[in-house]
Nucleic acid binder design. Structure first.
Lengths: 247, 247
DNA sequence: GATTATTTGTTCGTATGTATA
DNA sequence: CTATACATACGAACAAATAAT
């Protein structure tokens, strides 16, 4: 055993594991701004050389950072510093597009699928419909500057919102699609929040690793007359969003 | 093809998939109390026989229930009904003891540790103190009928709340401890919600497996005069609690 | 479009130290 | 004291995705 102290600050055999010290060093580098949000870290090979350890040891340290949502690895591209989580106010007038735009980022929603389905028990109750009544089900992904923040399943009562899919696909915003359907204003009636690991499909839609945590926000929106117009189950990537109430 | 309608209510080839109908039937069974929390469901084979479908179809239905947190499968043991999460309203007058009591369960908070520490940057800002000013730091666990629902780190400005630890330990409630310190009313100023896996210590305090998801709720409480009296970081076991806003 | 280089992801194998039964 | 399990670390090779040529 020799040549163990080639990297300043990396002390071997003193209780602190090598990967933990490397992780701390990288955390400090990010905190001090040496690496900034969106920036690519040096390759695993380069970091292994810098700290004079095996590439596996660097990978263990990077895994710890990824666990905390600080960085994200992308096969074939590199490892990148994640942006600080976006503060997402939840209230009676929650609007994804306005929140993202207010943070200086560009908002867009992609329509992945649309189908007419009979309302399940939960959706029927939320929308005050008979169970089995036809509703429009939309699967969407919502991005801020190309980064997916959330994915949602949305149910809309159907005779009324038959043209919603096309309006949403063209405008990329629930608010604007509602406006195109004659709904100028709407408010949030109720919100319920849970959290759990993402399954494989959800993870792919949000561009996160399977098993990472998502916050599940179930809500109901009503129009100015108090009629329920939208039941919603939105999954937020917990690493990228912080829900804010009041304040 | 024959013998496809042995189970009442299961209609094939009518838009509703078989697995969706089976899922709805099981949801109804759980809702009506046929299967109760903690109880083991019939085996997949038994359910396949009951609905006259292949076991794969039952598995698809059970996967949908597990997705929603209604049941949990355990390899080699069986599939069990999960306890319904406690609806936990988050608002300006959030009181743990009242919420739990309102659900017909007994609330109690245990004080695990108390210490006088210098305020960190975050706590100092929340409490409008100078960084490093002495604050009382409490580590608590909150139970409903012996089941831990949450664990919290609480910071209180110190000249004012020197007797808080003893008051809390004796009364098992933040609200009652505040009353003992002369604070008759307080309201929640702001709330921020994140979610992540629990580490080993947190998991032990909440009596959950390490890595299970916790919702991290950071809040600030103010007294009737608008003075910040408490900064708080509460971890909820995501399987046991559903946060509710408005409605 | 095809090729090549770069980068992360995965899986072997080996060795060592540490905590536990 | 021994045996077992687990975590840590190094080495090598290959697979898979991406970017540049």
């Amino acid at each position: 055993m020799e040549a163990q102290a080639q990297m300043p600050g990396l002390v071997r055999g003193e209780g602190l594991t090598a990967w933990r010290q490397i992780a701390d060093a990288l955390i400090a580098d990010i905190a001090t701004g040496l690496y900034t949000a969106g920036q690519q870290l040096p390759s695993e090979a380069a970091l292994a050389a810098r700290f004079a350890v095996n590439r596996h040891t660097v990978r263990r340290a990077l895994a710890a950072l990824a666990e905390g949502g600080l960085v994200r690895a992308s096969q074939g591209r590199g490892t990148f510093v994640e942006a600080a989580p976006l503060a997402y106010p939840i209230g009676p007038r929650t609007r994804f597009s306005e929140i993202v735009a207010g943070a200086g980022r560009e908002a867009w929603g992609d329509l992945l699928a649309a189908a007419t389905v009979p309302a399940g028990a939960e959706q029927a109750e939320a929308l005050a419909l008979a169970p089995g009544a036809p509703v429009l089900e939309l699967l969407t992904v919502h991005r801020a500057d190309e980064t997916p923040l959330s994915t949602a399943l949305t149910w809309l009562p159907l005779p009324r919102f038959s043209g919603f899919s096309e309006a949403y696909a063209a405008r990329g915003s629930i608010t604007r699609a509602f406006a195109a359907c004659g709904v100028d204003d709407y408010t949030r009636l109720s919100t319920r929040i849970r959290a759990r690991p993402a399954d494989a499909q959800e993870a792919e839609r949000l561009d996160i690793a399977p098993g990472r945590v998502v916050m599940v926000v179930s809500s109901v929106n009503i129009d100015a007359a108090g009629v329920p117009i939208q039941a919603n189950r939105t999954l937020f990537a917990a690493d990228r969003v912080e829900l804010v109430i009041g304040g």
